[in-house]
Design a protein around this nucleic acid. Structure first.
Length: 645
RNA sequence: GCCGAUGUAGCUCAGCUGGUCAGAGCAGCUGAUUUGUAAUCAGCAGGUCGGGGGUUCGAAUCCCUUCAUCGGCUCCA
């Protein structure tokens, strides 16, 4: 008998070879119906796989990522099965579960194109196959047999994958007539896959390598119940309504013009106003936190970027250098502010007593992003970084890091960004050649980052090999309306530029020393930040950020005190207040001239229960509903506003 | 840059397989209306159907090309 231990620490005995599913059944048939995978001794496994030894077991219901991954992974196989039926000779790359659904990369062969219009027929085939409720069978196979199998099949993608696998770890999963190389785990059968929706098709390079073949990637999602799919699709639809490009146009915040050039945002008056408020808000805080504001030109001599090394590394991806009447002289639009700031540092002499030096600039930079990369305000060719550089002694690095993390947390919290992730990028320990700087410095910097994050209680994921060539970094990421991750804030250690620009300070020992340079941005760029601010708040920007708010205060005595209270609460903000006297003149004026471009209108009133209320009306969408004062405060995140002032 | 899709008035869209197909609603303008929680009434104006080339007696509709946008890939100082 084997001992199986459950999450509640209870232990029960079973015959060796029993499947996880049968163990679940022995507890309750209901549980068995709800689970899709099990973690057995820290390994996520198929429910059907036998358990032969003592084990800790955790069952995964739909709420667990492990369950959904398993469900979607099997769905990917189901789709591949359908594709093989519909497109004989099709070859398969990889087909994993992703955060929402799954995809499969396929090579349809010469002259065969799968486009969105083909998706319904593939879906139909999937439903038909799923309906047969065929079971999924796992077999383990030797590397040579696996090679033979897929070589015979002529699938060069799978054989390439097998090449890289260790013998003895290779497994196959068979679903009906479709057999795939796969680690698993999988559902025991396809009967649970009731609702299927293929979402889109896209090109994707084999193994993510631009030089290799472009495969067709088909995205889909499945659920155990039709209702869940319906809800998901509604949710997607809602998310699309929050798209900052749509809201930006509706609220007249920003625009693009082909005549100006793609990827070059035009801030309309209201958007520029919002942008300026963010700048003012952050600038005030930076001054409180010991930053100096500097200002540098939009262009720089090519020599500047040759000194920094950026020209060599990124020159080809930049806007082309521009010539001057002076023979041989060339300037570039600045793709980053760092080199300029190094020269600002060099303009004066520095003592260890002055460090750390913190200089900030809202610096507009220009990068020639690839055509297909441009995306609303989140990826543009001209954007303004809330850039800053800290120059400090090596021993001060950790403290500076903590200060920056604190600032990021403060800003994000103030603006209502509660959901973000932080990622620490370290160098690839296998390949220190790629990086500039001594091992000692790297170790020191990496340790400082990890410790600083820990001390600030920042939850981070650590990724090796993602560091920039000049130093490790800490990035803050936020998701947009449809779940794409974007990097906003970043803190980076740099050993490269201080060397190249020969930056130094005089130490207590009267010797020259090299400062450590930290790059840092909180918003990342104002453009991207505004985009994500819009999407995360669905356009309901914090009141103090929203331009042209109007409050209509009823003049009638009945509401007078209450109106005053609200006004008092909102205190000297930029909200314009209009007093509606119900008079013809003013009534007409408000309706015809004042309200038409105002994103929100707040109207003071009273509900049926005689509770005083504030209703929020969004231009073009009508009444957003009446809310009580407290809800109203929450809605516009007014509490934070009080903290600012 | 690559794969796929899309591109009709300021906005959202209708226009099926080429022949009254250049349309609607909203927004705009003019006038009337003043009714307390979006869209009252009447009238007017708006588009060489993304640009260029081609096929055809005839193209918004078919083909080629180009630009832009959307979904991805790649890249991202």
């Amino acid at each position: 008998m084997i001992n199986i231990r459950f999450p509640d620490d209870s232990v029960r005995q079973f015959e060796p070879g029993i499947s996880s599913l049968d163990i679940a059944r022995s507890i309750s048939p209901g549980l068995a119906r709800q689970i899709y995978a099990a973690t057995v001794n820290a390994e996520v496994r198929d429910l059907g796989r036998p358990v032969n030894e003592d084990a800790d077991i955790v069952f995964h219901k739909w709420e667990d990522k492990e369950a959904r991954d398993t469900f979607w992974h099997t769905s990917a196989h189901l789709m591949a099965y359908a594709l093989e039926e519909l497109y004989p000779g099709i070859k398969f790359g990889i087909g994993p579960a992703i955060e929402n659904g799954f995809y499969y990369d396929v090579d349809t062969g010469e002259g065969v194109v799968i486009s969105e219009s083909d998706l319904p027929s593939i879906e139909k085939k999937m439903k038909e196959l799923a309906g047969k409720n065929e079971s999924v069978e796992r077999t383990e196979i030797s590397k040579s047999d696996a090679m033979k199998l897929f070589t015979d099949k002529g699938d060069e993608y799978k054989t390439e994958l097998i090449e890289e696998l260790e013998d003895g770890t290779i497994s196959l999963y068979r679903l009906g007539k479709f057999t795939d190389l796969c680690r698993g785990p999988h559902l025991t059968d396809t009967g649970d896959i009731k609702a299927i929706k293929l979402l889109s098709v896209a090109g994707a390079y084999w193994r993510g390598d631009e030089k290799r073949k472009m495969m067709t990637r088909i995205y889909g999602i499945t659920f155990p119940k039709q209702k869940m799919l319906d809800e998901y699709l509604v949710m997607l639809e809602e998310a699309r309504k929050r798209d900052h490009r749509k809201i930006g146009r509706e609220l007249e915040l920003f625009s693009f013009s082909p005549r100006v050039g793609m990827g070059l945002p035009l801030w309309l008056p209201r958007g520029a106003d919002l942008r300026q408020r963010l700048i003012d808000f952050l600038t005030a805080e930076l001054k409180r936190r010991g930053y100096s504001i500097v200002s540098t030109p939009h262009i720089g001599n090519v020599e500047l970027y040759k000194t920094s090394g950026h020209y060599e590394k990124y020159g080809a991806d930049s806007f082309r250098p521009m010539n001057t009447p002076q023979e041989g002289e060339q300037f570039m639009l600045k793709p980053m502010n760092c080199p300029h700031h190094c020269e600002v540092y060099n303009a004066t002499q520095h003592s260890y007593k002055d460090l750390p030096v913190r200089m900030a600039e809202f610096g507009t930079v220009y990068r020639y992003e690839q055509h297909g990369e441009l995306h609303g305000l989140t990826r543009v060719r001209s954007f303004t970084q809330d850039d800053a550089h800290h120059f400090c002694e090596p021993d001060q690095m950790k403290e500076e890091f903590k200060k920056i993390i604190d600032l990021v947390q403060w800003v994000f919290k103030s603006l209502g960004f509660n959901i973000y992730t932080a990622q620490i990028s370290l160098r690839d320990p296998e390949d220190s050649e790629k990086y500039i700087g001594t091992d000692e410095n790297w170790e020191k910097a990496q340790k400082a980052i990890i410790e600083a994050a820990g001390e600030k209680n920042l939850e981070t994921t650590i990724v090796e090999g993602e560091a920039a060539f000049y130093g490790p970094k800490l990035d803050f990421m936020v998701k947009d309306a449809i779940g794409r991750q974007w990097q906003l804030g970043t803190i980076q250690v740099d050993y490269n530029l201080p060397e190249r620009f020969d930056l130094n300070y005089t130490g207590a020992d009267n010797q020259k020393h090299r400062p450590v340079m930290l790059h840092r941005a909180i918003f990342g760029s104002l453009e991207r930040f505004v985009a994500l601010l819009i999407e995360s708040t669905a356009g309901k920007l914090p009141l103090w950020l929203s331009p042209d708010q109007v409050i209509i205060l009823p003049i009638s005595e009945k509401y007078h005190d209450y109106s005053k209270k609200v006004l008092n609460f909102l205190n000297n903000s930029d909200i314009r207040t209009l007093i509606d006297e119900r008079s013809e003149k003013i009534g007409k004026k408000i309706r015809d001239n004042e309200l038409k471009h105002i994103p929100y209108m707040l109207v003071i009133g009273e509900n049926e229960e005689n509770t005083q209320t504030v209703s929020v009306r969004k231009q073009g969408e009508g009444d957003k509903g009446v809310m009580k004062l407290q809800e109203f405060v929450e809605f516009f995140k007014l509490k934070e506003k009080e903290e600012f002032e």
